[in-house]
Design a protein around this nucleic acid. Structure first.
Lengths: 154, 154
DNA sequence: CTAGGATGGTCAACGAGGTTGTCCATATAG
DNA sequence: CTATATGGACAACCTCGTTGACCATCCTAG
């Protein structure tokens, strides 16, 4: 009786979830209790130069209205601001605030800490084997940002 | 420059997504277009002998009401039936129909096929290293069904 | 045998977050 | 200048998970 095929995707999901849950517990303890898993993808999609709600919706794989609601929510939480574009009166550019940048930095540090914990538990070689195997089996290059839209249909 | 910590969860998610998308495409082409990715895990949780909605909720980590709604939905799609338990008039046992068993069998075969493809690409030992590492780092026992809500809400 | 607690199922209200449809303001191409 | 495309906002609706409440049924301790 070999390993059943369903175990692999299940473990992948559980691993992702375990890391994300741990990260958000850290973030909550560091002054970001309202951040949710999808917000990291939203911050990445906004990018350093900011973007519009419509463009954000395209990047995230959701409608512009849904993106607009998310932006409004993050604005209430103080993570983003919307400023009018002098070059185009229709556009309202969404930008990360200092608080948003702080959350982004803490997320990066948190992911590094969690990886170090995996490394201590598994050992450097076994963790490297996992990462190397996943690197081989998953597409390289740009990480897709349409995760929120994809997750909704799960 | 060592591996950034954010790569691991991203690769885990990408791997999960790749497998699930591939299986979903197969199932849709085999007469199960309404089956959504997480339903396979629900079928696994129901098991060959059937269960109650309350027990299903416990196994999936959601409320009994949510499990009941999922059962109702799967019942409309023809994948499960609910039959009264003669030994306990409170219980309504959820069982897989022939269609449900067919979907379960095709899912299992699909997952196995995809795992074999990973094994051919990575080699048996490297795939085993990935699975073993994930097995070490992820908790046993729960097939989380609340994934969409988890991703958006917490 | 009965009283009290635990368990299973269902109904109702709510919230988060997504969707489509519509409308208006503004840009831009022909 | 006009026609089309785009960005933003509003409204109605859907899906799905949650909690709270309620009732029927089982089980166990007196």
């Amino acid at each position: 009786m070999s390993t059943p095929g369903y175990e692999l995707p299940l473990r992948l999901l559980l691993g992702f979830r375990a890391i994300v849950d741990e990260l958000h517990a850290e973030l909550a303890a560091q002054g970001h209790p309202d951040l949710r898993p999808m917000h990291g993808f939203v911050f990445q999609a906004i990018g350093p130069d900011g973007t519009t709600a419509a463009e954000l919706g395209r990047r995230l794989g959701v409608s512009k209205q849904a993106a607009g609601k998310t932006v409004e929510h993050l604005e209430r939480l103080g993570y983003v601001t919307r400023v009018g574009d002098p070059a185009d009166a229709r556009r309202k550019v969404v930008r990360l605030t200092d608080r948003g940048l702080d959350a982004l930095a803490r997320s990066a540090q948190g992911f590094d800490r969690i990886r170090e914990r995996w490394e201590r538990t598994l050992g450097a070689d076994r963790l490297a084997a996992v990462e190397e195997g996943l690197r081989t089996m998953t597409p390289d290059g740009h990480f897709p940002l349409d995760v929120p839209g994809w997750f909704a249909n799960l």
